[in-house]
Design a protein around this nucleic acid. Structure first.
Lengths: 106, 106
DNA sequence: TTGACATGCAACCAAATGGTTGCATATAAG
DNA sequence: CTTATATGCAACCATTTGGTTGCATGTCAA
């Protein structure tokens, strides 16, 4: 459950779209998730594999159907551990930038 | 200032490392940022270009030196607009998953 | 049992990515 | 002016990535 895998998984718009679809309706099958998309089923399979690898979706077999469930915990972790740091530094960094630009204008 | 560019920029560990370095000390030159790294200056230049493209760093010329400043605003935006949605759905999704697993155990 | 359906696996391909090297340009310093 | 320093630009290269197609496997239903 490396953070790098999560970042990489989120980097692709198709994968973010799949997460969006699962967010809208959880527990969809592979075929469900393929519906209306322009890529082939195999392309979706690969994307889902990468999301699964990053632990962003959990999978459950029901007979011949594979149900996909959104797991937003890694997203939460990334936001908390990594993005949170930058948010905390946000005002400071903007302050530096502003100060520097002001210095430059003199 | 597309969100896709931000996601893509954050996907690479070298670029996240560069942001970390700027977070530690803001306003470094290209040469500063190259120090101690294993890649060539040109590789760093390319990474900085991508970060700049994503508006994650702001640049300021001082003579022949290019100063780089961290801009965490796009990170904040991504966390707010996109990740925030999933955080809000976090408990719900986990509830679904748990409920489903329980159903399965019966 | 047989056929339809849901998914997996593997080979292959084009394009994007991350990196290098060599050379050019502009600014600072002696 | 000359030289060293800081950066940019462009060509090139190997690997990864996102996608395809074809075929195999497993499960449900008639």
């Amino acid at each position: 459950m490396s953070m790098d895998a999560v970042f990489k998984a989120l980097a692709d718009p198709s994968r973010r779209q799949l997460l969006d679809r699962l967010f809208a309706r959880n527990g969809q099958t592979l075929n469900d998730l393929c519906g209306g998309l322009e890529m082939s089923r195999q392309a979706v399979t690969k994307h889902l594999g990468i999301l699964e690898e990053a632990n962003l979706i959990a999978v459950q077999w029901r007979g011949r159907e594979k149900l996909h469930y959104l797991n937003p915990v890694p997203i939460f972790d990334v936001a908390d551990r990594w993005i949170g740091k930058f948010e905390r530094g946000r005002l400071r960094a903007l302050g530096d930038l502003k100060k520097n630009l002001e210095r430059e204008e003199k």
